[in-house]
Amino acid sequence: MKKVLKISLGILFLILLIGTFVFLWNKTRPVKEVYAIVKPHIDTLEKRAVATGKVEPRDEVLIKPQISGIVSEVYKQAGEPVRQGEVIAKVKVIPDMATLNAAESRVNVARINLAQTKQEFERVKGLFDSGVVAKEEFEKNETEYSKAKEELQNAQDNLEIVQNGIAKRNAELSNTQIRSTITGMVLDVPIKVGNSVILSNNFNDGTTIASVADMNNMIFRGKVDETEVGRIREGMPVKLTIGALQDISLDATLEYIAPKGTEENGVIMFEIKAAAKIPEDVFIRAGYSANADILIDRREGVISIPESSIEFEGTKTFVNLLTSDSTATDQTFERKEIQIGLSNGVNVEVTEGLTGNEQIRGTKTTPTK
C-alpha cells in the first residue's frame, strides 16, 4: 500500500515538473508581432473645426415703460406676433399725493389769474373802443390775457398727466400704453396684471414689460478654443446642427471672431457669431443648443493613409513598407520617409513618397507565438 502511494506521488510530482517547464518555455519564446496591412487610397479630406453654442435672435429688444404705475391690462402673450407700434400692455398711473396737490393748486391759481386778467382785458378793450386808451396799451393787455389762458391750459394738462399719465389733447402719444418698438415675435412677458412697474430713466433700467425679437434674423453664438481660432476667418461657410431638430442642418456664414479670448476651465476660448439661413418651413426657437461645423480646408483626389500608420521622428514622418509576401507568416518591413499634408484626424494626405500601390504596416493585431 505504501509502495503504491509513493509511486502515485512520484508521478504527480513529475507531471507538475513537466508542466512548469512547459509554461516557462512558452513564456520565454519571442512573441511574433503581426500587423494589419493597409494600402494608400484616393480620398477627399476635409479639415473642420467644431464650436458649441446656441441659436438666438440677432436683436432681442426689451420693452420698458416710460411711466411708473400698475399694469392694468396685458394684450400680448409669449409666442404671439407683434408689429411695431402695437400695444402690448397698459399701465395705470398711481399719482403721488404731494405732486397731485401741487398740480391742483397750480390749476386753481391759473384760473384765478385768468379771471383777473380777463376782467382787465375787457375793461381796457372798452376804453380802446372809445378811443381813450392807446393801441399799444390794448395790445399789451391782450397779450397778458392770452398768456393767462395758455397758463391755465398748461396747468390742466399737467394735472391730467399727474392723474392719468397723459393729457387729453395728446392722447395719441399716451405713454400709459406700452407699445412694441419693433416688428417680430413676443419671446417673454414677465409681468402680470396688477404688477408694479418702474419707468426707464438715467438712474434705473426700468421694469421689463416684454422682450421682442425678429425670429427670421437668427445667429449662432458659440466659442472655439485657441487651437482652432487661428485657422478660421470671417466669411467661411458653417453647418449648424441643432440638438432639438435631429434631421435638420442649417447653412450659416461666419461673420464675427472675437479679438480677445476668455479663460474657461484653463482653456482660452474665443466667441464667434454666424448668420444662420432659416428655411421658411422651419421654426427655430430662441436658445436652441447647436454645434457649428466650420470647413477649414478641403482636398479632393489626394493619396491618403491612416494616420495611425505613420511614425514621427522630430520633424520627419515615416511609414513601414511591406517587403515580404503578404501571405507569408513572417512579415518584414522597410522604413521610408514621406511628406504629409492635410489631416482630418483619421486619415492624412501624403504629398510625397508614395505612389498609391504600396502596402504599409498598420496597427498591431493579436500577437501569436
Results as ranks from 00 to 15, higher is better:
residue 204 N to I: 01
residue 206 G to P: 01
residue 301 G to Y: 09
residue 211 S to R: 14
residue 223 K to F: 15
residue 278 I to Q: 09
residue 321 L to G: 01
residue 285 R to K: 15
residue 320 N to F: 13
residue 207 T to H: 14
residue 217 N to L: 01
residue 257 I to G: 05
residue 210 A to P: 11
residue 270 F to G: 09
residue 296 I to H: 01
residue 262 T to C: 00
residue 319 V to M: 00
residue 293 D to A: 05
residue 207 T to V: 04
residue 227 T to R: 14
residue 329 T to C: 02
residue 321 L to S: 10
residue 324 S to V: 03
residue 287 G to A: 05
residue 216 N to W: 00
residue 316 K to T: 06
residue 311 E to F: 10
residue 309 S to A: 15
residue 314 G to V: 07
residue 337 E to Q: 15
residue 227 T to N: 12
residue 342 L to F: 00
residue 309 S to N: 08
residue 322 L to N: 03
residue 254 L to I: 04
residue 273 K to W: 02
residue 204 N to M: 05
residue 312 F to T: 11
residue 330 D to Q: 13
residue 260 K to T: 14
residue 314 G to Y: 06
residue 253 T to K: 15
residue 235 G to I: 07
residue 210 A to R: 07
residue 210 A to E: 05
residue 334 E to V: 03
residue 241 T to V: 06
residue 248 I to L: 12
residue 301 G to N: 15
residue 223 K to V: 14
residue 275 A to F: 05
residue 218 M to V: 05
residue 241 T to S: 13
residue 234 E to K: 09
residue 337 E to Y: 02
residue 331 Q to I: 06
residue 289 S to Q: 09
residue 271 E to Q: 15
residue 317 T to A: 04
residue 257 I to P: 09
residue 276 A to K: 08
residue 267 V to A: 14
residue 307 E to K: 12
residue 284 I to N: 10
residue 318 F to D: 00
residue 315 T to R: 12
residue 339 Q to F: 14
residue 242 I to Y: 12
residue 219 I to K: 02
residue 302 V to Y: 08
residue 232 I to T: 03
residue 220 F to W: 10
residue 272 I to R: 11
residue 209 I to Y: 03
residue 236 M to F: 15
residue 294 I to D: 02
residue 338 I to E: 10
residue 227 T to I: 08
residue 335 R to C: 07
residue 315 T to M: 06
residue 299 R to Q: 13
residue 236 M to P: 11
residue 273 K to E: 13
residue 220 F to Y: 11
residue 339 Q to C: 04
residue 295 L to Q: 12
residue 287 G to I: 01
residue 283 F to C: 00
residue 215 M to T: 09
residue 341 G to Y: 01
residue 227 T to M: 13
residue 254 L to P: 01
residue 336 K to C: 02
residue 256 Y to P: 00
residue 253 T to W: 02
residue 278 I to G: 08
residue 261 G to P: 09
residue 273 K to N: 12
residue 257 I to R: 01
residue 257 I to L: 05
residue 207 T to D: 09
residue 283 F to S: 12
residue 276 A to P: 13
residue 314 G to I: 06
residue 291 N to K: 15
residue 274 A to T: 08
residue 221 R to K: 15
residue 280 E to V: 14
residue 205 D to V: 02
residue 295 L to H: 03
residue 256 Y to H: 01
residue 310 I to E: 13
residue 289 S to C: 01
residue 269 M to F: 12
residue 262 T to P: 01
residue 323 T to I: 14
residue 304 S to A: 15
residue 226 E to S: 15
residue 276 A to F: 10
residue 300 E to T: 14
residue 334 E to H: 04
residue 313 E to P: 03
residue 264 E to D: 14
residue 230 G to L: 05
residue 291 N to Y: 04
residue 339 Q to W: 13
residue 250 L to D: 08
residue 261 G to I: 04
residue 283 F to G: 09
residue 288 Y to S: 02
residue 314 G to K: 04
residue 317 T to E: 00
residue 291 N to W: 02
residue 253 T to H: 03
residue 206 G to R: 12
residue 209 I to E: 05
residue 335 R to P: 07
residue 342 L to S: 00
residue 295 L to G: 07
